[in-house]
């Protein structure tokens, strides 16, 4: 198999996940996009490991071992990430990352009009 097939697919999947991370507003959808990016990296690791295990007679199988580690870390990451998102949702009533701007620098319109901010949060809850 030509090595470009998995490499190109991996690059495209990574950029799809990149778009999702940048464009999505819901925190859980952002986590899904992060999963896509991690999977793209995994595909790259597996493809290059299969290639090197023959071409360079590499017997360490480092790519596949690293893929297993990445999958495990991704599972841990999704657990922690969902716990954080649920805690934020419990406290704020929203998981919309565009509205979680309390630590943002500069001008924040929410702080100027707290009534409007409360109305927004009530709207997000409903």
């Amino acid at each position: 198999m030509h090595l470009a097939y998995p490499a190109v697919l991996s690059a495209l999947l990574f950029c799809t996940g990149l778009y999702g991370v940048l464009a999505r507003r819901n925190a859980i959808l952002v986590l899904m996009s992060v999963e896509l990016m991690l999977n793209a990296v995994n595909l790259n690791l597996v493809a290059f490991d299969i290639w090197l295990s023959r071409a360079a007679e590499d017997t360490l199988h480092s790519g596949q071992a690293l893929t297993l580690f990445t999958i495990t870390i991704a599972a841990a990451e999704i657990g922690i990430g969902l716990a954080i998102v649920l805690a934020v949702h419990r406290n704020r009533g929203t998981s919309d990352i565009d509205r979680l701007r309390d630590t943002a620098e500069g001008h924040d319109p929410d702080h100027d009009s707290p009534a409007a901010g409360q109305a927004e949060k009530a709207e997000a809850t409903a």
Binding site: H2, L3, S53
Partner: peptide, 21 residues
Amino acid sequence: VWVVVDAFRTTWIDLDGPAAG
């Protein structure tokens, strides 16, 4: 995609023989 295709244009994975994974 440009970098990857340019870098691995002449590289093939040998899938014959026992499964590497």
